[in-house]
Simulated assay, not measured.
Amino acid sequence: MIVVLKSGTPSEEIKRISNEFDSRKITPEKSAGHHKVVIGLVGDTAEIDLRQILNLSSFIEQVLRVDKPFKRASKEFRYGEPSEVVVATPNEPVTFGQNHPVVIVAGPCSVENEEMILETARVVKAAGAQFLRGGAYKPRTSPYAFQGHGESALGLLALAREATGLGIITEVMDTADLEKVASVADVLQIGARNMQSFSLLQKVGATGKPVLLKRGPAATIEEWLMAAEYILAADNPNVILCERGIRTFDWQYTRNTLDLTAIPVLRTLTHLPIMVDPSHGTGRAEYVPAMSIAAIAAGADSLMIEVHPNPTEALSDGPQSLTLEQYQELIQEIAVISKAVGRWSQTGCVAKIV
């Protein structure tokens, strides 16, 4: 259930209304948008008479029930207004959201060594990226595949952050590693295989740090949003959804099927920002540029692109990684389409376009 307050409602009245719900053992969560203040009510509201809520204050404009199972993630919970996730990076705060420039996240699948991660970080930063991605802990299908360098790789990510000012996005796989990963990462990533690891979602949510939630390879959109609900229910509103491809029948041509229809569908269901990962979504470097451009045209708020100085020698996911040169060329193409839809920063790499 949500309570929509009239524009200009005094803060004292908002507090009084919220206290009234507290006394009824219902949790009020205030969401201040650009035009409205909305109080979301979490708890057993099924038996509450809407007229009783309306009579609480003359400043209450409307009371609506949220009929979806994902309450906090639902679009109605913010009265249709998109949320923003602001991440403090060494250079400046970066905002993920529908009404902001496209945020570029780039880097290798795995952190392999100091030279490689620093070279990659400097190139992606120069081309306009705001975040460096790189796996310290890697979930792999085979127990014999490279699993990442773990804690030592976190140290290299911290070094790259200090050298370039890029924000860091890296995956946390286990609650036992959460504190170490959170000490380095500006955004904690929940990988596709852990999308429904509910205890992990709860503990990651409790850190208060921004969380990037990747869609599971066989997850429905509702299951994905219910996973986001676990993080939001931990009193952490900073969730970014990441579409990274789902499993279909054409596995012989692409690693996954990138579900770009998820973008407009999510826009009708949730207020949360949307990222697209065309690298995992296709598994083939040659398809990444087309899917990156298509994702922006469809309304994505951010892109995550795998980049490696020498993909043929990468310890993981080489076939889907762009070279540094290919990445620089792609960014110029991305800038063109992003400018066309009004989603490109005036700083960035627009000046490189000729």
Score class of each variant (00 low, 15 high):
residue 149 H to N: 14
residue 101 P to I: 00
residue 33 G to L: 07
residue 222 E to M: 15
residue 266 L to Q: 12
residue 345 S to L: 08
residue 216 G to N: 03
residue 53 I to H: 00
residue 279 S to I: 04
residue 237 P to D: 09
residue 326 Q to D: 06
residue 97 G to W: 09
residue 354 V to C: 12
residue 341 V to H: 10
residue 346 Q to F: 13
residue 113 N to T: 08
residue 87 V to C: 07
residue 172 V to Y: 04
residue 332 Q to I: 12
residue 310 N to Q: 11
residue 182 A to F: 01
residue 8 G to I: 04
residue 174 D to Q: 04
residue 347 T to R: 14
residue 55 N to P: 01
residue 20 E to D: 07
residue 194 N to F: 01
residue 54 L to R: 14
residue 205 G to E: 01
residue 11 S to N: 07
residue 24 R to W: 14
residue 147 Q to S: 14
residue 49 D to Y: 06
residue 38 V to W: 01
residue 128 G to E: 03
residue 59 F to A: 12
residue 9 T to S: 09
residue 11 S to E: 13
residue 64 L to W: 03
residue 339 K to I: 09
residue 55 N to L: 12
residue 267 R to H: 10
residue 103 V to I: 11
residue 56 L to N: 02
residue 198 F to D: 07
residue 328 Q to W: 01
residue 243 E to D: 04
residue 290 A to I: 08
residue 289 P to S: 13
residue 145 A to K: 12
residue 114 E to K: 15
residue 214 K to T: 05
residue 220 T to C: 06
residue 72 R to W: 07
residue 343 R to A: 11
residue 42 V to L: 14
residue 329 E to D: 15
residue 10 P to V: 13
residue 94 V to P: 02
residue 121 A to M: 13
residue 193 R to H: 03
residue 4 V to F: 04
residue 52 Q to F: 10
residue 84 E to A: 15
residue 112 E to K: 03
residue 267 R to I: 01
residue 52 Q to C: 08
residue 189 Q to H: 11
residue 281 G to H: 11
residue 64 L to H: 14
residue 188 L to Q: 09
residue 20 E to W: 12
residue 202 Q to C: 00
residue 266 L to A: 12
residue 31 S to N: 11
residue 286 E to P: 01
residue 176 A to Q: 14
residue 77 F to G: 00
residue 299 G to R: 01
residue 137 Y to I: 02
residue 9 T to K: 01
residue 76 E to N: 06
residue 164 T to W: 09
residue 188 L to I: 11
residue 81 E to W: 13
residue 63 V to N: 09
residue 324 L to R: 05
residue 287 Y to K: 08
residue 58 S to I: 15
residue 21 F to A: 00
residue 180 K to P: 00
residue 213 L to Y: 10
residue 184 V to R: 04
residue 157 L to V: 05
residue 172 V to D: 07
residue 102 V to C: 06
residue 262 A to N: 01
residue 60 I to V: 02
residue 188 L to E: 07
residue 354 V to M: 12
residue 15 K to M: 08
residue 287 Y to I: 02
residue 252 Q to I: 11
residue 263 I to Y: 09
residue 111 V to L: 00
residue 225 L to T: 03
residue 151 E to S: 10
residue 32 A to Y: 04
residue 50 L to R: 07
residue 24 R to D: 09
residue 327 Y to C: 07
residue 268 T to Y: 12
residue 12 E to I: 13
residue 354 V to I: 12
residue 35 H to F: 14
residue 81 E to Q: 15
residue 283 G to D: 00
residue 228 A to R: 08
residue 231 I to Q: 08
residue 128 G to Q: 05
